[in-house]
Structure formats: C-alpha cells, structure tokens
Amino acid sequence: MAATLSDETLIQQAVQGRQSAYAMLVKRYEQYVFTLALRFVKNREDAHEVAQDSFMRAFRYLPDFRGDAKFTTWLYKIVFSTSLNHLRKNNPDILSLDDDDKPIKLKDPGTPDASYGMELGDRSASLQRAINLLSPDDAGIITLFYLYEQSLDEICQIMGLTMSNAKTKLCRARQRLKVILDEKFSSEVKEWI
C-alpha cells in the first residue's frame, strides 16, 4: 500500500521521475519542514516560503542523496541552510544563528519539588509558544532534539556544530526556555524549576 512505502522506496521512485513519489514525500514531511522553518524564521509567511524552497532544493538534489545519513537529517540540513539564507537575505548582518553571548538569567532552583499541576496538553501549548519566542538556533536545536528526536550527532550534521558545541547549545537553549517560561508563562506553568 502506498502509505506504507519507506522513504528509501519513495526516494528511488522519485529519482526515476515518478511525481506521485515526490508528492508523498511532501505530504509525509510538510509539517516537520514547516515547523522547523517557522522555528528559524519566526514568521508563518516566510516559513511557508522557506519550507517550499527547501522541498524544491531537496528534489533538485535528490539524485545526489546516497543514503549515508537519514533522509530526515539530510532534509533538515537543507531546511536549516535555506532558513539561514533567508534570514541573511533579509538581514545581511546575520552571519550565523549563534546567540551564545546573550546572558541567561536563571532563577535559583532552590529545593527540588516534583509537584507540577498542569495537564500535559496545557504545558505543551505553553511550551510551543515559549519555543517560538526563543532565538532561531535555540528553537531549532530544541525542536530537532526533542520533537524530531534527532541525535546530537545528527544535529551536528544539520547545524554544522561540533559535538561539545551542540551539547552546550542544547543546555543553554533549555535554560533560556526556562527563563521565558518563568517570565512570560509563569501563570500557566506552575512548575518549571
């Protein structure tokens, strides 16, 4: 059945010129690509443009995809570079998405407490809004690691980072997320350290 076709099969068919295989790849990954693009460019209209450009670039270079990495890792790498190009086009001063110089004002964690009174759905919605307030690279790394379950090694390939750099970035991104949740969503999030 078409819905159960693996990425590899669809890629093979697409490379052979079967348009329906391209369409299935778009349907399968449109939300992933759009969400990641939105995390980077922060604007739905631009995210649509970046997501579409990413798919077009992916299709153009699909014959060069040799399967050394996962298809998703390869695709997210394209989304990352397309987003970066888009941001640079709109703001030529941007050289990278790095914002590690920004200070993080962490609240004193105090005594650990396991009580947290929010439903998972509420918390996820607040988290989604908080992630959208993060800087592009923070939002990107959080999305790639937790939502897309990419390993640190894969994140290094996507964002062009070293292993230790990726780990530090992820830690800092999480800390900044806590600060945002604390400052902007404290009424909704009773417990986030």
């Binding site: 992933y32 997501a51 989604q128």
Partner: peptide, 15 residues
C-alpha cells in the same frame, strides 16, 4: 512535554 509539543500546520494547499 517537550517531546509532545505539537507541530505547526502549514496551509492546506501547501503540498
């Protein structure tokens, strides 16, 4: 909760 953050939906005619 981070694993369960909902994904953003593109417009219906995106594909």
């Amino acid at each position: 909760a981070l694993f369960n953050v909902p994904m953003e939906k593109p417009r219906a005619d995106f594909a």
